[in-house]
């Protein structure tokens, strides 16, 4: 019975069949609909064995998921999250020993920090007194609250380590060399932003640890040449504790409520947005500068000499 209906929708009953009357006709019709629906249900169940053939699947994924190289390439290129990748890469670049995976891990940690950070914001008020109570509440009463805070803290520390190691690897492999000079500069800015993100977050629990760390850190700003009231030439420019660069950072002459609010806004909004912009440029340039730098074939000294003009020389300089 099911086969009869499979594939094509049931056609309307031909007009030359003598029509029955009353209840029997209704029952017949019900039976017919029933048979059709059972057939369709079986058909749907059958199609679940091959979900990639369904219209819903095709509407989401757009390309075939088979092992042909065209489909593999399209799978990456036509996906918004994956399209930062090229469709093919250097076969040795996937080895762990070249990149150590540190750049990717750093980005993943940024994602983890954004996720846990947004969740933490639901429980936190950036006001003196309330801030510390929120943290105590989070650690003791909120379900998974301590896990959430711990993950945010440890991911932040880990991110600094992975940023340093990423930079170390990039230096050791000479990956900042032409044509990737500018991307190294973007990376240095991202390093600074990572440190600042962590530093601004340090104050937010409003405990002794954060308070004194930020006090020590921002006290350095007093000594800024020209712009700090204790720095060289600062007094000559009429710098006082109430108008110098430290005052601008803290929103006051001591680490207090304004400093907490400023740290909060820098930490949760301003620096993440700025860092995201630089990250977009960083990743974009990795692709535009020819993908990851290696492992490249080694070049010999004689070959660099043969090139006569070294590839990396300021143009106007001649022998």
């Amino acid at each position: 019975m099911a086969e009869e209906h499979s594939g094509t929708p049931p056609k309307e009953a031909p007009s030359d069949v003598p029509s029955k009357k009353g209840l029997a006709a209704v029952l017949d019709e019900v039976r017919e609909i029933n048979t059709a629906l059972v057939g369709k249900a079986k058909e749907d169940l059958e199609s679940l064995k091959q979900p990639e053939k369904t219209a819903v699947f095709k509407s989401i994924f757009r390309v075939k998921h088979d092992e042909s190289s065209r489909s593999r390439a399209l799978g990456v290129l036509s996906n918004v999250f994956l399209h930062l990748h090229p469709s093919k890469i250097n076969r040795d670049a996937v080895r762990y020993n070249y990149t150590w995976g540190m750049g990717g891990i750093t980005f993943y940690l940024f994602v983890v920090l954004t996720f846990t950070g947004v969740l933490l914001m639901y429980y936190y008020h950036p006001t003196k007194g309330q801030a510390y109570r929120d943290i105590v509440y989070l650690m003791s009463d909120v379900p998974f609250g301590s896990l959430l805070r711990n993950m945010h803290r440890w991911a932040a520390h880990l991110m600094i380590i992975t940023v340093w190691l990423h930079m170390f690897r990039v230096f050791l492999t000479g990956s900042y060399k032409k044509p990737r000079e500018f991307n190294w500069c973007v990376g240095v800015i991202l390093l600074v932003l990572t440190l600042l993100l962590s530093f601004t977050g340090y104050l937010l629990p409003d405990d002794q640890l954060g308070f004194w760390a930020v006090t020590v850190g921002t006290n350095m700003a007093r000594a800024t040449p020209f712009l700090g009231h204790e720095g060289p030439f600062g007094p000559l420019l009429h710098m006082t504790p109430y108008n110098d660069v430290r005052f601008a950072l803290l929103g006051g002459s001591i680490v207090d409520a304004n400093a907490l609010l400023r740290a909060y806004i820098w930490h949760c909004i301003a620096i993440p947005v700025i860092a995201s912009v630089f990250m977009i440029v960083h990743f974009w340039r990795v692709r535009k500068d020819g993908g990851i730098s290696g492992p490249a074939p080694v070049v010999l000294e004689q070959e660099a000499i043969k090139a006569k003009v070294l590839p990396y020389v300021v143009p106007q300089h001649t022998e």
């Binding site: 230096f171 050791l172 492999t173 000479g174 990956s175 900042y176 060399k177 032409k178 990737r180 000079e181 500018f182 190294w184 500069c185 240095v188 390093l191 730098s293 290696g294 492992p295 490249a296 074939p297 080694v298 070049v299 000294e301 660099a304 090139a307 070294l310 590839p311 990396y312 020389v313």
Partner: peptide
């Protein structure tokens, strides 16, 4: 750190240890 790529005039060693 930023000036490193611009002052390192050695063309060798780009992309390998």
């Amino acid at each position: 750190l930023i000036v490193i790529p611009y002052i390192d005039a050695n063309p060798l060693g780009a992309g390998y240890y």
